[in-house]
Deep mutational scan, measured.
Amino acid sequence: MATDAALRRLLRLHRTEIAVAVDSAFPLLHALADHDVVPEDKFQETLHLKEKEGCPQAFHALLSWLLTQDSTAILDFWRVLFKDYNLERYGRLQPILDSFPKDVDLSQPRKGRKPPAVPKALVPPPRLPTKRKASEEARAAAPAALTPRGTASPGSQLKAKPPKKPESSAEQQRLPLGNGIQTMSASVQRAVAMSSGDVPGARGAVEGILIQQVFESGGSKKCIQVGGEFYTPSKFEDSGSGKNKARSSSGPKPLVRAKGAQGAAPGGGEARLGQQGSVPAPLALPSDPQLHQKNEDECAVCRDGGELICCDGCPRAFHLACLSPPLREIPSGTWRCSSCLQATVQEVQPRAEEPRPQEPPVETPLPPGLRSAGEEVRGPPGEPLAGMDTTLVYKHLPAPPSAAPLPGLDSSALHPLLCVGPEGQQNLAPGARCGVCGDGTDVLRCTHCAAAFHWRCHFPAGTSRPGTGLRCRSCSGDVTPAPVEGVLAPSPARLAPGPAKDDTASHEPALH
């Protein structure tokens, strides 16, 4: 009773807030009518008042009428009001819900409408889902798969039609296919003929059939049928067999079959498995989609049935006599038709004709302190090069084509190399640097090759510096006499390219 009084008091307290929050009759008014909170006449009256005075006034009048009803109607109103779709449509209802007392429970059932309790003993237990329907569909599909699609060729003596089998029958139906081979029951999904010589313990000319048996419980189990008994694959494991010639990621696949039913060829011909030897223990289905393919039931050349050999690369099948050149017997292992072999060759040939990528240039590290003349020119003028003790990398590039010797140069053309002071002394051009340390401070000019250098860098042994005729380390061993002091540049003949010694390969005349 306390809860009923509290709900009535809360409705009177929030009546105006609810009326202002509800700006549309749908969905709240319609939901109240659906849950029998508002009768039909009051529903029509509220809609009429909404058209006349507006939605807030109409709902305020409806809530005032609701306060005169019993506690069950008020409880049902609060339940409908706080439904998710009403809270989404009328956003101003959320503060009312947040301020609702926590001790007021809106989930209690309506009085007088409590459903009768059902004894637990009368409640049926839930049924577990079964796979009976899938099993029945598999039974119905198996006879259809064994139905012949056409008439065999005159040369083929193997013609068999499976008798119709009602689904209610649980007995196995067997077809006489000759040579002791028996087909599987209607619940078998796949059958492959297997030679009895590969099964340990088999006697006589009995041949087993590799099947997948579907049981009534819905589970499946792969086994071997020899005669009327089934054997699990673990009985046929043979770890010492060295003649297993397995197909790549293979499961067994029928390579020879008669049109209309699988079996042995007439005249004692023995149908073979995809792999010879003992049956392997793992009978998992292969991951290669080509091995799941269903080959055609007629020859791809003459479009006739009979004894066919199936290609492992495509769905086509052929007569042995229709092949070019014809085959006398079934080859062992994987067999592919000429079209598949030709496609494989065409895929391999473009790969062989692809040009080989060019090898990157060989990189040879230079000892610290040495650099090529090109690196000396590329440096920024007026700045010493940083990191001189790091190992430089010199790339061996292809030799350029031989060019004509340089033409003779006048001494005026070499004027930018040297600057003559007032006393006739050779001065260095701006930006000249030593080729060893890279520093341009207090550098000297070689009178023979006009290269800038430090005496301490080229002659670290402490050799005394002569007063005139300074030469760098590369030119100090040259027998050519030094030019007379005061000459602007060496003779043009000295600039012609010539053979250089091994220790002077990195010091070429550089223009500054």
Rank of each mutant, 00 (worst) to 15 (best):
5 A>P: 07
140 A>G: 11
132 R>G: 02
46 T>K: 00
171 E>L: 15
9 R>I: 02
40 E>D: 04
66 L>Q: 03
197 G>N: 13
130 T>E: 03
95 P>E: 07
71 S>G: 07
66 L>A: 05
207 E>R: 02
20 V>R: 00
37 V>S: 00
211 I>Y: 10
183 T>C: 15
160 A>F: 11
36 D>I: 02
207 E>I: 02
153 S>E: 12
236 F>K: 02
137 E>L: 07
238 D>A: 12
126 P>C: 03
267 G>V: 12
94 Q>E: 02
67 L>M: 05
255 L>V: 10
61 A>Q: 04
200 P>D: 05
194 M>C: 05
88 E>G: 01
184 M>I: 10
183 T>L: 06
72 T>P: 05
25 A>Y: 00
239 S>E: 07
51 E>M: 00
138 A>R: 13
250 S>P: 01
121 A>V: 06
84 D>Y: 04
162 P>T: 05
74 I>C: 03
11 L>S: 02
231 Y>R: 06
14 H>A: 01
20 V>I: 14
268 G>L: 11
214 V>P: 03
176 P>N: 04
168 S>E: 05
122 L>F: 14
142 A>H: 04
262 Q>T: 07
113 R>T: 09
110 R>I: 13
158 L>P: 06
194 M>L: 10
238 D>C: 13
29 L>K: 03
151 T>R: 07
84 D>V: 01
133 K>V: 01
120 K>F: 10
159 K>C: 12
254 P>D: 05
89 R>L: 01
152 A>H: 07
107 S>F: 07
108 Q>Y: 13
153 S>A: 08
157 Q>Y: 14
166 P>F: 15
227 G>H: 03
234 S>M: 12
66 L>N: 00
201 G>Q: 11
236 F>Y: 05
42 K>P: 01
96 I>M: 00
259 K>R: 09
124 P>I: 15
102 K>S: 07
187 S>T: 12
131 K>W: 01
51 E>H: 02
74 I>S: 01
241 S>I: 11
25 A>S: 03
40 E>H: 01
250 S>Q: 00
14 H>Y: 08
118 V>A: 10
143 P>V: 09
269 G>E: 11
124 P>W: 15
50 K>S: 15
40 E>W: 01
159 K>F: 14
60 H>R: 02
163 P>L: 08
198 D>C: 06
107 S>Q: 02
249 S>C: 14
69 Q>T: 01
21 A>L: 01
26 F>V: 01
17 E>L: 02
12 R>A: 00
191 A>R: 13
34 D>Y: 01
54 G>E: 07
6 A>E: 14
193 A>F: 03
90 Y>S: 01
182 Q>V: 01
239 S>W: 14
186 A>K: 06
141 A>F: 15
262 Q>L: 14
71 S>Q: 15
90 Y>E: 00
109 P>C: 06
103 D>K: 05
112 G>Y: 08
190 R>H: 08
248 S>A: 09
152 A>L: 12
239 S>R: 12
30 H>V: 00
142 A>R: 06
186 A>F: 01
44 Q>L: 06
121 A>Q: 02
106 L>R: 02
130 T>R: 03
152 A>D: 06
216 E>D: 06
248 S>W: 10
147 T>W: 15
208 G>N: 01
133 K>N: 01
116 P>W: 12
105 D>N: 04
203 R>V: 15
186 A>P: 08
52 K>M: 15
13 L>F: 11
168 S>K: 11
54 G>Q: 00
118 V>Q: 06
31 A>S: 02
185 S>K: 10
198 D>S: 13
65 W>G: 03
252 P>V: 14
154 P>C: 06
254 P>A: 08
272 R>G: 08
58 A>K: 00
44 Q>R: 07
53 E>S: 06
56 P>F: 09
20 V>D: 02
180 G>V: 05
110 R>N: 05
141 A>D: 13
112 G>C: 09
184 M>A: 02
190 R>S: 07
42 K>T: 01
195 S>W: 01
101 P>L: 03
212 Q>R: 11
181 I>K: 02
113 R>M: 05
271 A>F: 08
82 F>M: 00
256 V>T: 07
110 R>F: 09
